[in-house]
């Protein structure tokens, strides 16, 4: 996350505890239908292609959008045993223990743990993109040390690199997790003082949002290029995903985005039906690989996984358990020969 270091110091916004996701989605949804819409959201709405009640004639306009130069910090977020275990149950991850028999937090669960802080950033009035309707393109996680259940983590979140994408505007939301220092040494908190144990960069797309010409674009990982044609690998597994998959994952991750919860709520937001959470797919793929920190994992979401569904899965691993070197998990729709997600793990 070196880009962060090059930025002028971000203003620190300290939250006492993790905010409630339900409230933030309600706010975001409220913004969408125009009630209590803020300047940033109004700007966004003008450029979003989503079918909006009463706004069918939304026009697209090139706008100068800026990310707020802030970072949100939530200190002392405890990794709860119950939270980790119910999360693992839903994504079918084995709950692992370290050499002393202490429960280890699942890497996918750490994303869920920090997610409300990211949402707090995305739903801020000065965040320039519409929260509802953001498309999760990919996730890049650098998980350097095992985190144990019962430990407390300091969460830091910021947004960076707002850039052009062939389908709109893309932005990185970066989450860093550090072990909370013991005692009340506030100076020891936050970026710079302690190395993060888990760093995640989520790339989101705001479809149809056009950035002004001075904005950078077509950057980094070739995310803007057309993908090569998908050739399905030989499957090694299958997931039967029930219609309640989104609700089950919402219950353990707290991510109650309506596009995941039911057909009607998803259709109201322009989806074909309820779609699986990207991080459900990523976590379940990661669970199949059963990799432990230190590791780097990345997941790319190619097409939405509409529920219910039976999807083909292919796991390609080099080594197992402690000996795992790298792995790729491909999740796709066998009938339509369309990829849903690809996870890669490096150790």
């Amino acid at each position: 996350m070196s880009a962060h270091d090059l930025q002028p110091a971000r203003q620190k916004i300290l939250l006492e505890s993790m905010p409630s996701l339900g409230g933030m989605y309600a706010k975001a949804a409220g913004q969408l239908v125009g009630r209590g819409a803020t300047a940033g959201v109004r700007r966004a709405l003008r450029s979003t292609p989503l079918p909006l009640p009463g706004r069918s004639g939304a026009t697209r306009r090139r706008t100068t959008l800026r990310l707020p130069n802030i970072q949100i910090q939530v200190p002392g977020v405890k990794v709860e045993a119950h939270g980790n275990s119910v999360f693992c149950q839903v994504v079918e991850a084995p709950v692992r223990v370290d050499e002393k028999g202490r429960e280890v937090a699942f890497s996918g669960y750490l994303h869920a743990l920090a997610f409300p802080a990211a949402m707090a950033l995305l739903t801020r009035d000065d965040f320039p993109l519409p929260t509802v309707g953001l498309v999760h393109l990919s996730n890049h996680v650098h998980h350097t040390q095992q985190v144990l259940v019962g430990e407390s983590l300091d969460v830091t979140v910021w947004a960076q690199d707002l850039r052009k994408h062939r389908a709109g505007a893309a932005v990185d939301v970066v989450v860093e997790l550090r072990r909370s220092p013991r005692g009340n040494d506030d100076d020891a908190r936050g970026a710079g003082m302690v190395e993060p144990v888990w760093t995640g960069r989520s790339v989101y797309l705001a479809r149809g949002v056009q950035l002004s010409s001075e904005a950078g674009g077509e950057t980094a990982s070739g995310e803007s290029q057309q993908r090569p044609e998908f050739t399905p690998p030989v499957p090694t597994a299958r997931w039967s995903l029930g219609a309640d998959t989104g609700r089950r994952y919402a219950a353990v991750s707290g991510d109650v985005n309506p596009i995941h919860l039911s057909g009607p709520s998803a259709k109201a937001l322009g989806m074909k039906g309820a779609i699986a959470h990207g991080m459900y797919t990523a976590s379940r793929a990661l669970a199949m690989v059963d990799a432990q920190a230190p590791m780097t994992w990345e997941v790319e979401f190619q097409t939405p996984l509409v529920l219910p569904s039976s999807v083909a899965v292919a796991v390609d691993r080099t080594g197992r358990a402690e000996g795992l070197r790298e792995a790729t998990v491909t999740v796709w729709n066998a009938k339509k020969r369309k990829p849903h997600a690809t996870l890669t793990v490096q150790r």
């Binding site: 090694t236 597994a237 299958r238």
Partner: peptide
Amino acid sequence: VAEPRTGLSMGEHQAITTAR
């Protein structure tokens, strides 16, 4: 009837081997 680790039935597994 599915293999717990893969979710594939025995027939689906064998179909992969048959094709290979």
